[in-house]
């Protein structure tokens, strides 16, 4: 148990540092910025029996840490706590109602189900984030454009990270 807590803490810190020092400085285009740190929320080990309160609070804390570094008010915190809360319904939707009983991990699930789940999480997060950052309805098209383009890069990075750290059976 202690080992798991330590592992998750390290992942939390590494992902935040990676995000603010490296990924936020990539200059591909003004539309594209990947947000890999939500990998923490996507892959956090949690089941139905566990206490979701802690998980929702951790999601919030993750977003707030990124906000602290990037002068974005509370935009990352809001987007992160939203997908932290929506994770359960999204998992149910993508993996089916019986996903808990099988006790499967995300890395071992069928690729199509995994893709739906991760895409839903990323799109929700990015849309909320860019919308709150923009803080107006006037730039709707621009926000959507930015969401789609950034989501593609985030998706590629997250799929790559998951397959890289997949445990061999």
């Amino acid at each position: 148990m202690n080992n798991a807590v330590l592992l998750q803490s390290v992942r939390f810190i590494v992902l935040v540092l990676l995000q603010v020092t490296l990924l936020n400085t990539i200059n591909l285009s003004q539309y594209i910025n990947p947000y890999l740190y939500i990998l923490f929320i996507i892959t956090f080990p949690i089941s139905d029996k566990d206490n979701r309160l802690l998980f929702i609070f951790l999601s919030f804390l993750l977003g707030l840490s990124v906000d602290l570094f990037s002068d974005s008010g509370g935009a990352h915190a809001a987007a992160s706590v939203l997908i932290g809360y929506l994770r359960k319904p999204y998992m149910r939707f993508s993996f089916g109602v019986s996903y808990q009983q099988q006790g499967q991990k995300i890395a071992q699930s069928p690729f199509s189900q995994r893709l739906i789940y991760i895409s839903l999480m990323i799109l929700t997060h990015h849309l909320t984030l860019f919308f709150i950052e923009s803080f107006s309805f006037a730039n709707m098209m621009y926000v959507i454009q930015k969401t789609l383009l950034s989501s593609i890069l985030t998706l590629v990075l997250i799929l790559f990270s998951i397959s890289m750290f997949k445990k061999k059976q």
């Binding site: 929702i56 919030f60 707030l64 008010g73 509370g74 915190a77 809001a78 809360y85 709150i132 803080f135």
Partner: peptide, 28 residues
């Protein structure tokens, strides 16, 4: 769960709105 989510979400939105209105005194 929902109440905690709502509380934290509103808090984040609050910080954002605060930083837009009083752009001199954002604490984050």
């Amino acid at each position: 769960n929902f109440l905690l989510f709502l509380l934290l979400f509103c808090f984040s939105l609050g910080i954002t709105i605060h930083s837009h209105i009083f752009h001199r005194s954002t604490f984050i």
